[in-house]
Design a protein around this nucleic acid. Structure first.
Lengths: 148, 148
DNA sequence: ATGGTGTTTAGACATCATCCAGTATTGAAA
DNA sequence: TTTCAATACTGGATGATGTCTAAACACCAT
């Protein structure tokens, strides 16, 4: 299961920063300076950023990068399987570097999005649905984080 | 269960068209001509329209209605519980007059959205999730409609 | 008629995302 | 190392989506 392995690898902080370029190359992407800069942020964040948030974050270290490049790069990463897009709330697309299956919880107070591991929740009878060829599915939950 | 009853009522074609105004009034909305025109389309459609599609559809019968009025009316309907918004795909908010719980299937080929009845699919162990206070949830499926 | 409340309107504005044409960079071949 | 073709980057234009505002309008009670 290459995806799971890849993901675990990416999330182990030690091996990560120094090899973003290699990661891009493995996915058939020429690692330009701009793409590495975008990748170093977006492939390792868990804040589910919008495209413009990515732009803003990357400019902290790379002030001259253009908006079009960030959008192009994000779309390229999605096409090559490094990112997924989520359409969950706020009529804004956000990006998620966890490409393996998981569910999502949306905090309606602050709009934050949280990953819920695939095993925590089960969906039953979905194979029995007539008329649809299901390629992917997830549970989307809305609510608020518990105070504790 | 007032919601289910209300919904079934609304979807029974006979009782419907002649009483959109009454329906609005029951929900605390002054039924102006524009609001009734919007309601007669959006409260009985199953095509999950975006705001601008609503505008376009309503203008067929009501050519002088303004865009702002359609947006205002849709937001008012959501606030008063006649509609729900969905953020499922295509970075555009769409509206759904089925306010009772149900799931959604998104056709990735043509972008169409289909309602899946609540009973067809079950979600297990969702109450056991720690850290989240869940107010609402649904299963979102992606794929293609079966040819048949 | 008058005034008050609430609604509608057109257009301005803001944001999100893509497209385009010119420029720069890169990698491979000579 | 130089050249060239392919690829990538850039700023600005464009389009789509959504909100806001101020003025006009409609309706109702006085």
């Amino acid at each position: 299961m290459p995806h799971l392995t890849r993901s675990r690898f990416r999330h182990s902080l030690i091996a990560v920063k120094r090899d973003t370029a290699g990661l891009l190359r493995e996915h058939g992407i020429q690692p330009s300076a701009q793409r590495v800069a975008v990748g170093e942020y977006v492939l390792f964040t868990d804040e589910h950023p919008s495209a413009d948030l990515v732009w803003s974050r990357v400019r902290d270290n790379f002030p001259w990068i253009s908006r079009a490049t960030v959008y192009n790069t994000l779309n390229l990463f999605v096409e090559k399987g490094l990112l997924k897009t989520l359409d969950l709330a706020d009529n804004a697309v956000v990006f998620d570097p966890r490409v393996e299956r998981h569910h999502h919880f949306v905090d309606d107070e602050d709009g934050s999005i949280h990953d819920v591991p695939w095993e925590k929740v089960q969906v039953c009878n979905i194979e029995g649905l007539r008329g649809y060829q299901i390629r992917d599915y997830q549970v989307v939950m809305h609510g608020v984080k518990k105070k504790r």
